[in-house]
Amino acid sequence: MIGMTLIVKTITDFVVGFIIVFGVYIVLYGHLTPGGGFAGGVIIACAFILAMLAHGKDVAFSKLPEKAAHIIDSGGALAFLLIGWFGVTVGAFFMNAFGRGEVFRLLSSGMILPLNIAIAFKVSSSLFLVFSALAIFRRRSFRAMIEDELA
C-alpha cells in the first residue's frame, strides 16, 4: 500500500480542503487582516505536502502535475513583474495603476490584491516542487545505493 494507514488518509482527505480554503482566505484578505500572499502560499503548499505525505507522490501529482507546477511557478513570478511593469503606463515602475476601490472591502487598494495572489501562486507551487524533488531524490538515491551494494 502506498502512503500511510487508512485513518491518516481519511483524515487527510477531510482536512486538506479546509487548509486550502484557509490559505486562500489568508491570501485574499492580506491587505485587511494579518497575513498575505507569502503566508497563504505556504499554507496551501503545506496542504499539498500533507496530501503527498499521506497518499504518496502519485496521488499528489495527479492533483497538481509537475509540469503545471513549473508553469505556475514561473508564471506567478512573471505576473508579479508584469503587474509592476503595468505601473509604467501611469508613470513609474510599481506605481499603483489599478483603481483604489473602497476602504476595508475585498476589492480595494489597487495592485496589492493581485500582487498577493501572484505571490501565493508562485510560493505554493515552488515549495511543492522543491519538496517533491527532495522526497523523490531521496528515494531514488537510496535505490541506487542498494543496487550499488548488491552489484
Binding site: 491587505h31 498575505g36 476602504v103 495592485m111
Partner: peptide, 11 residues
C-alpha cells in the same frame, strides 16, 4: 486604501 500597514509597506 490598505488597512494592514505592513502589507501596504511591503506591497
Amino acid at each position: 486604501y490598505c488597512a494592514n500597514i505592513v502589507t501596504a509597506v511591503i506591497l
